[in-house]
Computed example of a mutant assay.
Amino acid sequence: MSMEERERVVESLPAEVTWDEMAMPEGDLHSEGKRQALGALRGYFKQQRRRVYVGTELPIYYPGERRFAPDLLVVLDADPHLRGKWVVSREGKGLDWVMEVHVGGDRKKDAEYNVRRYARLGIPGYFIYDRARERLEAYRLPSPEAREYVRIEPRHGRYPSEVLGLELQLDEERLRFWAGNALLLEPEEMNERLRGMLDGAQRRADEEARQRAEEVRRREEAERRLAELQVELERLKSRGE
């Protein structure tokens, strides 16, 4: 098959999955779990100016494998432009990190089948965010050649991900990402912090303007008083003469 023919085949691959291939919708807990993590990771890697693709529910095509669409996926050293699908043969590499968000129903797909499948595909890191039980399960490949996961044990409540260079933690029903001692803020939190900084800067500017206006008023009052005193002095001199 020529390159042009191969490209036409890739282009013809669907950019969506069927209902049979997807889990049933699980409401706000499921969508919020993905959205918050997506925003935090995209913001972090953008700030780091790293070429990292972060996507959600993207149809994934591995050669000879049935397509699938993980809740959240990360590919290192990949252009972060928008995509409708990830075709390994076109992109030149597979996924580096996957997270599935589980809310209800049968856990076997995420906790058993995907553990075996993602390891067999050579995906280095796999996390399960179980919102029903409020816990994390984390796996990694012990070597690039390995095709069986080992569990990642938490350290002081945080699960390290060598792939991401981050640590994950559940905190008050929210999934948090840490870069060392720095907490990765979600977009809403970043906006709120920026608004707070802007409000603080505006208050300081208003206070400085008020102080400058008060200084001008005092100076003008002092100048007016000085002029009055000079007039009074001249009046007294004229009387003395």
Rank of each mutant, 00 (worst) to 15 (best):
D110L: 04
S31G: 12
R218N: 11
K34Y: 09
H30A: 04
L229P: 03
E207L: 10
R158Q: 05
G33E: 01
M24G: 11
E234M: 09
N114V: 08
I128C: 05
I123E: 00
A23D: 11
P144V: 09
R35C: 08
G33H: 05
G94C: 01
I123T: 00
L226S: 12
G125H: 08
M190R: 15
R176T: 00
L236E: 12
H102N: 08
V17P: 05
Q202M: 12
V75M: 05
V101M: 05
L38S: 00
M22E: 13
A119N: 01
A40F: 11
I128K: 00
T18V: 06
P187I: 03
A227P: 10
G240P: 13
D106I: 02
E188P: 04
P187S: 05
L175S: 06
R217L: 15
A138I: 01
P59E: 02
V17T: 14
V17R: 14
Y113R: 14
E137G: 08
V98Y: 07
D106E: 02
D77H: 11
Q36E: 06
L198M: 11
E112C: 08
A111F: 11
H156F: 15
R51E: 09
L76H: 04
E11T: 07
R204S: 02
G180H: 09
P144N: 05
L226H: 15
E220F: 07
R204V: 11
A182D: 15
D28S: 14
L82T: 12
W178P: 00
A69V: 09
V54D: 08
E7P: 06
Y149S: 02
E162L: 13
Q202D: 10
R212H: 09
L29F: 10
L82N: 10
P25C: 02
R212W: 15
R6H: 15
S89R: 12
E137Y: 10
K85T: 00
R193H: 09
L168M: 10
V163N: 06
R49T: 15
E32Y: 14
L170N: 08
Y126I: 09
V52P: 01
L184C: 07
E134N: 13
Y44C: 00
I60R: 01
P154A: 03
E232K: 13
A179T: 02
E167R: 04
R107K: 13
V75S: 04
R219C: 04
Q202Y: 11
S161W: 06
E228S: 06
P63H: 10
R239C: 07
A179P: 02
R66F: 14
V10W: 13
R140I: 03
R195E: 10
D110G: 02
D130A: 10
L95D: 06
E21L: 10
V101A: 06
Q47K: 14
P142G: 08
S2M: 12
V87T: 06
E148T: 07
P59L: 01
A205Q: 09
R90P: 01
E232N: 12
R131V: 01
Q230T: 12
